[in-house]
């Protein structure tokens, strides 16, 4: 759940060089009953979202609804302009909704769906131009995958065990990081 009050979080970070190692680590940790906060990687790791138990995003539904909004906007705009407000007879074509309405309706459907979805994506991911990033490790956008475990979620005594599991699956470095950020999102 989102937590905006507590702006400080302490993380135990395991760093890896290969996506397979991260997947194995996450599985092993989950098998031992530890919950993994998140994994940061330079590219999407196939299947990891399911392993982490991330619920399938409903952005598709958003896209559909935005698309329908676009269709309705286009159809009502054309109906109003071409039929109610100022009917035009050009080339003997009907001024109301005819096959000729298809192209513009289609374009506006796509336009609304695409922009609506992308902006929804930015909103739910709390991304905006100029946002200060929460960087677990600067190499995360290069070649390092970081497995983050929230320290408040684990017992002090288990830390060694967790580190051991990560090391045994190929972590090349273990570190801790404290992050101050009010825009943390889970």
């Amino acid at each position: 759940m989102s937590s905006y009050k507590d702006t400080t979080k302490n993380f135990l970070l395991g760093k890896f060089h290969k996506p397979g190692q991260v997947i194995n680590s996450v599985k092993a940790l989950q098998g031992e009953g530890f919950s993994v906060y998140d994994v940061y990687s330079p590219f999407p790791i196939h299947g990891l979202d399911r392993i982490l138990g991330i619920k399938r995003s409903r952005l598709t539904i958003a896209a559909f609804l935005f698309g329908m909004t676009g269709t309705c906007t286009a159809l009502s705009m054309m109906l109003y302009m071409m039929y109610f407000d100022w009917p035009m007879d050009i080339g003997g074509k009907p001024s109301y909704l005819a096959p000729a309405a298809v192209p513009v309706s289609f374009e506006l459907t796509v336009l609304f769906a695409a922009f609506g979805m992308v902006f929804t994506f930015f909103a739910v991911s709390k991304m905006y131009p100029g946002k200060k990033p929460v960087i677990m490790d600067p190499r995360v956008t290069d070649d390092v995958m970081v497995l983050a475990i929230e320290k408040s979620a684990i017992e002090e005594a288990d830390q060694d065990k967790i580190e051991g599991i990560m090391m045994s699956h190929g972590a090349f470095e273990i570190s801790e990081k404290t992050v101050h950020n009010e825009l943390f999102e889970v």
């Binding site: 003997g92 074509k93 005819a98 096959p99 000729a100 298809v102």
Partner: peptide
Amino acid sequence: FISQYLLIWYAN
């Protein structure tokens, strides 16, 4: 379908 139909409808 719409490509064929629209063009024939439009050109009349």
